[in-house]
Amino acid sequence: LISVMSDQILNIPELENDGIVFAKQGFNIIGTANTRDKGVNEMSGALKRRFNFETVEPVRDVSLEKEIIIREAQDLAKTGHIDQPVDINAAELLAVTYHELREGITEEGTKLEKPNAVMSTAEAVSVYYQTMSSAWYYGDGKTDLGELTQNLLGAVCKENKDDLEKLKSYFRIAVKEKSARKGGIWTEYLDTAKYLK
C-alpha cells in the first residue's frame, strides 16, 4: 500500500501497457479499525504517516442511539424481507442497556463495572436485528425479551467470559432498580436474567 498511496501507481505485470495502472482523480483509500483491536499485524509507521486518522467516539445520547437502532434494524429487515415493525420500547431498552454498560453508570447515578467488550451502537443494532429475525422466523413476530437478553449475552461475552459477571451485576443492580421504579418492560427484562448462565 505504501507505493500505491505515495506514487498512486499500481504495477500488475499480467496487464498490457507495461502492467502499470495509474490512479484516477479523487483516488483515496479508506481503512477502519476498532481502537481496542490491535489486529493481526501492527500498522508500520511509514503506512501510518500516509493516513489521516479520525476517531469516532461512541454515541453518548440514548435517544439518538435508539433512533439509530430503529433505523438500521428497519433497513436490515427490509433487505432481509422481514415484514415486521420494530418494537420501539425494546429498542429503547437496548439503547439504555448499551449506554449504561458503556459509560459505567446508570441514569439513576449508580456506578457499574464496565465490560471489556466493545459496546458499540453497531453491536446493539446487531443484537436487535438478531432478535427481530428470530421473532420473524421462529417466533410469533413479537419481540421476545428472553431472546434479546440471550443475544446481548453473546455480544457482551464473546471475547471475555469475565464480562458475564458484569452483565449479571447490571441486571441485579440497574435493571432491578428500573423494574421497581418503572415496571412494565423493565420487569419483563428483569425476568430474563435467568438466561445469564
Rank of each mutant, 00 (worst) to 15 (best):
S169F: 04
A95C: 07
F171L: 07
G104V: 08
E100S: 15
R181W: 00
Y189K: 07
R71Q: 13
L15F: 11
R172M: 13
E72P: 04
A124I: 07
H99E: 12
F53L: 01
E42I: 08
P115D: 06
V59Q: 02
T32P: 00
D83I: 14
S133H: 06
L167P: 10
I9K: 08
I173A: 05
G183W: 10
E72W: 09
L148A: 00
K161C: 07
D18F: 11
M119K: 02
F171S: 07
V127P: 14
S133D: 03
V175H: 15
I185E: 03
K158N: 14
L47D: 05
A174V: 09
G183D: 08
Q150I: 10
I105V: 14
T106A: 09
T131S: 11
F53Y: 07
K78P: 00
I185R: 00
Q25H: 09
W186T: 01
H81W: 15
A117N: 06
K197L: 06
R49H: 04
A117T: 05
N28S: 09
F22K: 10
E159L: 04
L101R: 13
I68S: 09
L94P: 08
M5K: 13
L64C: 01
I9S: 01
A46L: 11
L93P: 01
K48C: 02
K78G: 04
D162L: 11
T55F: 14
M119Q: 09
G31C: 09
L153F: 11
R60S: 15
E57S: 10
E177F: 01
Y128S: 03
R50D: 07
L164F: 08
M5L: 14
G26K: 05
Q130W: 12
P115S: 09
S3K: 09
K178D: 15
D75W: 02
L93W: 04
Q150T: 14
F22V: 07
Q130H: 10
V4M: 01
D37K: 03
E54Y: 06
P13W: 13
S6Q: 12
K178G: 13
A73W: 03
K142L: 06
R49M: 01
Y129I: 03
G19K: 03
L94C: 12
V40S: 02
A46G: 09
L64T: 13
K66E: 12
E159H: 06
K114L: 00
E72I: 15
D7N: 12
E14H: 03
N52H: 11
L190K: 15
N116E: 12
S44H: 02
L101W: 13
E113S: 08
D163R: 05
S63Y: 12
G141T: 11
E14I: 03
E67I: 01
M132E: 04
Y195Q: 08
K78C: 01
S169P: 03
Y138R: 07
R50F: 04
E54L: 13
K197N: 14
D37S: 12
N151G: 07
A23E: 04
A77D: 08
L15C: 04
N34I: 12
I173P: 00
N52C: 08
L153E: 02
Y137F: 06
G141K: 02
T131W: 09
L164S: 13
R50P: 02
V40W: 02
I88S: 13
I70W: 08
S3G: 13
Y138Q: 10
D37P: 00
A174L: 02
L112F: 10
D61G: 12
I69Y: 02
R102K: 11
E42G: 06
A90C: 09
N28F: 10
L10P: 10
Q74R: 15
D18V: 06
W186E: 02
